[in-house]
Design a protein around this nucleic acid. Sequence first.
DNA 1: TTGAAAGCGGTACCAC
DNA 2: GTGGTACCGCTTTCAA
Lengths: 333, 333
Amino acid sequence: MNIYDIAQIAGVSIATVSRVVNDSPRVSEKTKRKVRAIMEEYGYTPNVFARGLGLDSMKTIGIICPDVSDAYMADAVAHLERGLHEYGYDCILCCSGYKQLNKEKYVSLLLAKRIDALILVGSTYAGEEESQVKYLHEAAKRLPVFLINGYVEGEDIYCAYGDDWAVTYDVTGKMIESGRKRILFLCDSHSYSANQKLAGYEAALRDHGLPVLGDLKLYVKNRIHTVRDILLERRDLKFDSVVASDDGLAVGAIKYANAKLLKVPEDLCITGFNNSVLSTCCEPELSSVDNRVEELCRLTIEHTMMVLQGKKEEVPLKSQVPCRLVKRCTTDF
Amino acid sequence: MNIYDIAQIAGVSIATVSRVVNDSPRVSEKTKRKVRAIMEEYGYTPNVFARGLGLDSMKTIGIICPDVSDAYMADAVAHLERGLHEYGYDCILCCSGYKQLNKEKYVSLLLAKRIDALILVGSTYAGEEESQVKYLHEAAKRLPVFLINGYVEGEDIYCAYGDDWAVTYDVTGKMIESGRKRILFLCDSHSYSANQKLAGYEAALRDHGLPVLGDLKLYVKNRIHTVRDILLERRDLKFDSVVASDDGLAVGAIKYANAKLLKVPEDLCITGFNNSVLSTCCEPELSSVDNRVEELCRLTIEHTMMVLQGKKEEVPLKSQVPCRLVKRCTTDF
DNA sequence: TTGAAAGCGGTACCAC
DNA sequence: GTGGTACCGCTTTCAA
């Protein structure tokens, strides 16, 4: 059943049917009703390919994230999908992993699919150096690119991210003010956001007259037991508190504390990041920074729609959303 | 840059360019090289819409799940996306929620997008009665439909699921054999898989000569604190063990035990389902049934490809994968 | 308000 | 092995 069939049955031209489908004002109400009734009766659905050919758009948005099985990204993807769907857009989801080559491959693959916009979730896409974000600039020449949780400067690259620096500065400061002197910084990558957190942590130490010690900056794989075991093995490492860049790492620290029978937060004060289920699952429950994914996604969707509607002048290239610490049982401030 | 441009530059016909793009054997190696070089040079990518129009396929597979922010589904989606991508297929992801109407809407939306196959993740799609799966039968008339974690009988509906009944029967049996007499069954839905688990639980009770008590079958919302609080409030409810249909529910039970200072597993023996991060995050760590998503996804992908390659006779309509209990600290058998 | 017809960018059949 | 060309199903301009 195609537009020709409908036209014939309705006794009008395909142009008219097309206008009805697109709800053009230049068709009489009477004709509209008639044609609609027939489309309904025969269960006609316009062919998306033919439509795409003409309009060069399929109302589809590409979402790339390193790995949806990560709770934070899954959450983001869920919010994005829901929101975009409300605007009549579908989502093609791609999990690129963390390797540069694959990120680039996925982007060009999506470009070939003629998606309407590209949304990248995760600060890994912000790259560590200019050469790593070149592909984003290239992509941005063809369609609007949106980054969640990272910042890349460039025309038509719109970024939404939390103030990781500020919140980490703040949390670290509070730890110091509550008497901690040796704060361990736990991290699992060198992404944009990880670097922001690290910088905030270091600034807080400096501003409070504490030394920035290389030993106390630990890069570990984000697996609970791995973190616990590494901390247990490093008997040389002395610390009275932990600022972790992810809940998984923080829970590893909690497991370490439990294993060593340390009192939390008295002997070891711990904060995580992302405010995921993990933080209410562990024991004691984890104080964690809420990165406000929902808000970041909301903003991104809003911006995407504005840009797609040609109002890109009204959309800021960078949008920062304030994070906030959700206090539970692993902090005493 | 389209096929006509390339043809002109290369001094061949569009037919030849098309053949080169599709790597047809009926083009001389020399011509292929020449045309390929030009395509490369000008960065030509075939228009997917035009191609779709002709072939009526866009090498895209629709994935529907109730909610990707759920760890289990996120995991499944991640596996599916990775696997399908290896076969050159992209994924359109839809989160339908649990309402019948929305499930149906999403399916017809995807059908209109002319996807090549449909994969549904979650036993909620198996429905509770025939009328609820009618839309799947309709869809299956147009394209192959795959279910992960649920069973629906019907032509061209291929299902892969764990043996929830058997593993629950088994676990419940072991609890009884280790001396438990009042086993609480925790559940958050009436989905196909939930019903299987319940049936396995009840069968085990019966086979061991224990009564099936309505009080001990509890339907709760899958939120850790909610579960804990409900159990704390129900002071009338006596139980010495818990079989939960999801890790989240089981962790709720652990929180309850911790709050009441019950010893786990001595005073309260607990098992969860899905073997998610939650099970290694909580304290004590949870024994949980591994539902083998990865294997379910692997099978589904394999089957999808076979069906799309026209070998549907070789694909079984139902594939069962044995689950297994991963023992941690909340059980003593 | 409606219709005719020219694209959109490919695929595939049929000649040569 | 290569080229010519009729589709695929829709949008949109131009005329009427």
